[in-house]
Design a protein around this nucleic acid. Structure first.
Lengths: 155, 155
DNA sequence: GTCAATCTTGACAAAAATGTCAAGATTAAA
DNA sequence: TTTAATCTTGACATTTTTGTCAAGATTGAC
């Protein structure tokens, strides 16, 4: 159970562009490449995913660059994570892992699936209730805000 | 953010051996291979990981096979998941992703790290409070038991 | 219009995860 | 003791993920 590289970089790029959103406008691929220490080509590839996901807009030409497509508080981290890394648990799961039993242990009742869904629900409760804005402040503030979920996270 | 194949198979094998633990004793590699639809060699490779993790014991020879090393209720799912797939978030993270900034954005304050830790805490609250025994009943029972975590999951 | 800077796209290379194979070691039954 | 069944290990092949590259398209400044 790991975060993919695309997820890690994608979140970092959004944070970088989220900070730029308030103070100025956007950033260019070379700028992000330099500040994050990733090759320009790789930055371009990953920003493309976020653009196709609707989180970013790009402009070409001499004064071009990338900007958020809407304010940070309107960008849901759950949506972002699903765009970058897909869903943790997928319905296809049961098709790939039915084993040789003709009575697929999974279609009727499957504890592995139950565990996966429990984990996914826990993760979704966190990421669906965060926006990019929550990631722009200091780390301690984020942890403080969300560690006691009773106030903000609906079940 | 995906489960690794090793995690998926590892959990399934433990469930299979957990059911065998009460009724009889253990299972052989060919038996698990057949019921789960995975090659014997691959089963052998994955069971080895669980054995080295201390969850299983093996015996060779004509009447050999694999058995749980202790009762299902003493096998913590969090321990199992960490053995199979490592930790979701690792301290090494900040070493690999410091970027070119000499003042590593991560060592002092890093919202990406904060998000990762929030997610990991949510996952840990689920898996650290489950034992293999919880996975041996019907799926509905598992979801029911743990969906309202107030009673059983300590913060 | 020319130039330099930007983003865009598809193809390719490298690395990591996953799965397979072959040879061997151990044990119990016949 | 022989045999057949089991587990054990390391090497290798395949697949997926990740990262790189080259050629092109667009835009603003001069």
């Amino acid at each position: 159970m790991k975060f993919s590289a695309q997820e890690e970089y994608g979140i970092r790029f959004l944070i970088s562009l989220g900070k730029a959103y308030y103070s100025g406008k956007g950033k260019t691929i070379p700028e992000i490449s330099k500040s994050e220490g990733i090759s320009q080509h790789n930055v371009a590839k990953l920003l493309r995913v976020l653009r196709l996901g609707g989180f970013l807009e790009s402009e070409r030409g001499h004064t071009g660059g990338y900007t958020l497509s809407r304010p940070p508080e309107e960008i849901n981290i759950g949506d972002v994570m699903r765009t970058l890394g897909g869903k943790l648990f997928d319905e296809e799961f049961c098709k790939h892992h039915s084993g040789n039993n003709s009575f697929c242990a999974h279609s009727i009742d499957c504890s592995t699936r139950g565990l996966w869904m429990l984990i996914q629900n826990a993760v979704d409760n966190v990421i669906n209730n965060l926006t990019l804005r929550d990631l722009l402040g200091p780390e301690k503030q984020l942890v403080k805000k969300k560690t006691n979920p009773a106030k903000s996270i609906a079940l």
